[in-house]
């Protein structure tokens, strides 16, 4: 695979070039209230935030939007007419997401192609090129290296950009799609200069955890009702903050929104931390209390994902820690469980 480089100017020209070709460009921008989000950008003059440690939300909604219509229905003379929604899916470039978020896309893809192929997700993924920028900075919530990833990790990206000292990026193609992207936008890229020196890669706190040991502990049936869940998660208030900002959380709900004799079926994000998520029609709720719901999320990351999809469920982006209103820190559970199993 080839390694090229592009100057600071070429980097921003690339955004304009892609837009002029009709490609959707999604990049980190600082919005009007100061949050950094991955949004569609239209010009190289947008309020970019490529140096931000990480966006507030994950970029998963580029492929798995929080809200989308899957079908429309109408009561006609011959019964109910149903029409599947076929959204126009544009060529898209995710420019400047972080390696952890790119790695998460592999895990998400596994879920959406498991027993049922979710065309809305897979079509968007197929038409997208993922360009990650290696992290030169981490904050105290980042822990990618503790779950087997790296601030300059390559998993899930088509191209990895690394910041060059003094400006510009080194561009490493990681997939055929990445190579094609460079070929199609060759005016922005130049041959790698031998003397090129990169900005140092971020140092990420090592939690000293072992995810194999965590998995082994979770596999033991007697630990399902372990008191650690109550100890850690009794304070959880049950909001959906952690699941909605998480790059691998993927649960959704299908609901009908009727308007008279017509309506649409929509697919909306849902989260296992909500009390009604597992509520049965009978009124029974198998996860009656919040610590059980929090245990489920932890299981999903460190046991269910590896068991069912042979993938990691947590990429260490740290968003759930940053967003939690009660400082329920997943790494505390990881540390405690590692200690119990070692």
């Amino acid at each position: 695979m080839s390694v090229n480089q592009l100057s600071e100017d070429a980097f921003y020209n690339l955004i304009d070039d892609l837009n002029s070709k009709g490609t959707t460009v999604v990049a980190p921008v600082r919005n009007e209230v100061g949050m950094v989000q991955y949004e569609k950008v239209t010009s190289s003059k947008d309020n970019f935030a490529f140096d931000e440690v990480i966006g507030r939300y994950s970029p998963k909604d580029a492929f798995f939007p929080q809200h989308e219509t899957v079908l429309r229905y109408r009561e006609g003379e011959n019964g109910v007419e149903v029409k599947a929604e076929e959204p126009e899916i544009n060529d898209t470039v995710l420019l400047g997401i972080r390696p952890c978020d790119a790695a998460a896309m592999i895990s998400l893809n596994k879920v959406f192609t498991w027993d049922y192929i979710d065309n809305l997700f897979t079509e968007r993924r197929k038409k997208a090129v993922i360009i990650s920028i290696a992290c030169n900075e981490a904050d105290e919530s980042c822990y990618c290296t503790s779950v087997g990833f790296a601030p300059d990790g390559k998993e899930g990206s088509d191209l990895l950009f690394s910041k060059i000292k003094g400006g510009g990026y080194l561009a490493e193609a990681l997939t055929d799609e990445g190579e094609t992207f460079i070929a199609n936008n060759s005016t922005c890229f130049s041959k790698k200069d031998k003397s090129v020196e990169l900005e140092p890669i971020a140092e990420v706190t090592d939690l000293g955890v072992n995810i194999e040991h965590i998995k082994r502990w979770l596999d033991k049936k007697e630990n399902f009702e372990h008191k650690v869940w109550d100890d850690l998660a009794a304070k959880c208030v049950g909001c959906g903050g952690c699941t909605f900002v998480c790059p691998t959380c993927h649960c959704f709900d299908l609901v009908d929104e009727p308007y008279g004799d017509q309506g649409k079926r929509v697919k909306n994000w849902d989260g296992c931390q909500f009390d009604h998520f597992t509520l049965h029609a009978s009124g029974h709720n198998p996860r009656e209390h919040q610590p059980q719901r929090w245990r489920n999320r932890f299981h999903c990351k460190f046991k269910i994902y590896p068991d069912r999809f042979e993938k990691k469920g947590c990429v260490g982006c740290g968003r759930c820690i940053r967003v939690c209103p009660v400082n329920l820190d997943i790494t505390e559970a990881m540390i405690e469980i590692t200690a119990m199993e070692s």
């Binding site: 959906g240 989260g271 209103p325």
Partner: peptide, 16 residues
């Protein structure tokens, strides 16, 4: 409307 547009329905507001 500009502010509400950003709402992600995580319901942290009601849960806290």
């Amino acid at each position: 409307m500009d502010h509400f547009e950003r709402c992600i329905k995580c319901y942290a507001c009601k849960k806290v």
